[in-house]
């Protein structure tokens, strides 16, 4: 191993992998919460929706569209003041979280909206005819019936997030991207770049496999 990858500090690599996983999972949790809220708001406030509201619809849809339009690397710079205000620094995995969440939640929010739109209108109507409260319809019908799509959407988002963590690495967020860039690329130690690539691909595959397995298990259609 040492011959194949002469420049690698294995302890550093473990730390970098841990940071990537931490950033991905923590940002994924934030993305899940924010994305579901955004998706629900857009869906519920749409014309003819359960909470039809032109202004809420306009504002949430605009928020999602704007943040999806801004390239991630620019988004990092844009919210730098907020990050520094919150954490006192913009370096390190935790400081990268706001940018990661803001970068991926609007994307996931759209996927949530699409998943909710796929829920059969007849089923919602049946719930209304049974006298269900809107809250019951949201939690027991909308979110429950669209769960497989929500999970597969989350899988896609998680993989995009892993990519974002590597981009965030370029400005010192830590993780495998950071390691590959500063220790590998800038020193022309290409073996470090290769091993980081392999690890990222492996992480992506693992996320995909878990996502697929969970989706398959809960999809009763």
């Amino acid at each position: 191993m040492t011959n194949l990858f002469p420049n690698i500090d294995w302890a550093d690599l473990v730390v970098a992998t841990g940071e990537t996983l931490y950033m991905t999972l923590a940002a994924l949790l934030g993305t899940l919460i924010l994305g579901v809220i955004l998706g629900l708001l857009i869906y519920l406030s749409q014309p003819g929706g359960l909470w039809e509201n032109k202004w809420v619809h306009l504002v949430t849809a605009a928020f999602v569209n704007i943040f999806r339009a801004v390239p991630f690397i620019i988004l990092i710079f844009l919210i730098l003041p907020i990050t520094i205000f919150l954490f006192g620094t913009f370096r390190g995995p935790t400081a990268a979280l706001p940018a990661l969440i803001l970068g991926s939640a609007p994307f996931y929010g759209r996927l949530v909206e699409i998943a909710l739109k796929e829920v059969d209108g007849g089923v919602i109507e049946a719930a209304k005819a049974m006298g269900a409260k809107t809250r019951t319809i949201i939690f027991k019908v909308l979110l429950r019936e669209s769960l497989p799509a929500l999970v597969s959407g989350l899988t896609v988002t998680a993989i995009a997030l892993i990519g974002y963590t590597a981009v965030a690495g370029a400005i010192g967020a830590g993780g495998l991207g950071d390691y590959a860039y500063y220790y590998g690329f800038t020193r022309r130690d290409m073996d470090i770049v290769y091993i980081c690539t392999i690890l990222i691909v492996v992480i992506v595959f693992i996320f995909q496999a878990i996502g697929d397995a969970v989706t398959r298990k809960i999809d009763k259609r």
Binding site: D120, A126, G131, K220
Partner: peptide
Amino acid sequence: LRVKRQNIGMIFQHFNLLWSR
């Protein structure tokens, strides 16, 4: 009305069952 609906049954052409249940 919502409470009253609990006592008015309705069935549909396309059944409208929750497939996750």
